[in-house]
């Protein structure tokens, strides 16, 4: 464990803490799938321009939680919620808060790369187009900027018109990140974004996350504790639908206050 922690960069995390604002404030969130109580009294505050990792054994509710943040969880029928999640001060469960509007501000990257069966260019231009941008020159600029932002421009700049499924899985995932960046979101949710990738692609995505946090707030679910330790500023440990501990990542990994957290990060279960 210790080697991982020394590798991590934690420079100045506390110094500018006061200047940062919360993007998400989760208050007493409960969620049920039918009769299954999947999230219990969650209270979490997620700060802007940070990487927040959510870890925990499978079935602990971490994926459910991140999908609640952009209300994708409601695609499953028979989901019920109580409590509130404030995004930039506004409750996302409000009647007049449209999911489309919320999801325009909050991008998402999924477990398995899921590019659209279209060209690389059209994948990235999809978001700007549905928001009404038709000017070819502006679209070209957005596509280039987003692909550069996702650190894949050099690899695909000569094959923008090829089908997005013609490139490797790791590249596909970065196309999906570029696709999310193209609508200039405020927050990027990442649901185990490297679980389907090889180690080299994983490394690239992790480096990218470090780069992206300058401009975006990132919430990443991962089943890989080393990954959380490597890339995140804060870490939340979920167990059985509850937040056991939420703190600075180095605290969680070096000096956890809860016994269960310690057991989990030292590999006794999960």
């Amino acid at each position: 464990m210790t080697t991982i922690i020394t590798n991590k960069s934690v420079s100045g995390a506390t110094a500018d803490q006061t200047a940062k604002k919360a993007v998400y404030e989760t208050k007493q969130l409960n969620l049920w799938y039918g009769s299954n109580h999947a999230l219990k009294n969650i209270d979490l505050e997620i700060m802007e321009n940070e990487v927040t990792a959510i870890i925990g054994p499978s079935g602990c509710g971490k994926s459910t939680y991140i999908k609640t943040l952009n209300r994708m969880v409601e695609l499953v029928t028979s989901v019920k919620t109580s409590g509130e999640i404030l995004y930039r001060g506004r409750n996302i469960f409000d009647q007049d808060y449209g999911v489309e509007e919320l999801r325009t501000r909050v991008g998402m990257v999924f477990q398995k790369p899921n590019p659209f069966p279209k060209s690389i260019y059209d994948n990235v231009a999809y978001g700007p187009r549905i928001h009404g941008i038709k000017n070819k020159k502006i679209l070209d600029e957005i596509v280039e900027k987003s692909l550069r932002g996702a650190a894949i421009w050099e690899e695909v700049k000569d094959r923008l018109n090829e089908n997005a499924y013609s490139i490797s899985g790791g590249q596909q995932q970065r196309i999906c990140i570029a696709r999310a960046l193209a609508i200039e979101p405020d927050v990027i949710l990442m649901d185990e974004p490297t679980s389907a990738l090889d180690p080299i692609s994983t490394l690239k995505v992790e480096e990218l996350v470090q780069e992206l946090k300058k401009d975006y707030s990132i919430i990443i679910v991962t089943h890989n504790m080393q990954q959380a330790a490597r890339i995140s500023d804060k870490t939340a440990f979920f167990l059985n639908g509850e937040v056991v501990e939420f703190d600075h990542t180095d605290t969680i990994f070096s000096n956890p206050s809860d016994k269960r957290t310690e057991d989990y990060i030292s590999g006794r279960f999960g």
């Binding site: 449209g98 489309e100 509007e101 325009t104 928001h131 941008i133 200039e184």
Partner: peptide
């Protein structure tokens, strides 16, 4: 520079929902 203006997104949202 930002290409996507949040105001225009919100303005267009109504039409898209309709």
């Amino acid at each position: 520079m930002r290409y996507i203006e949040q105001q225009t997104v919100v303005k267009r949202m109504n039409g898209r929902l309709i």
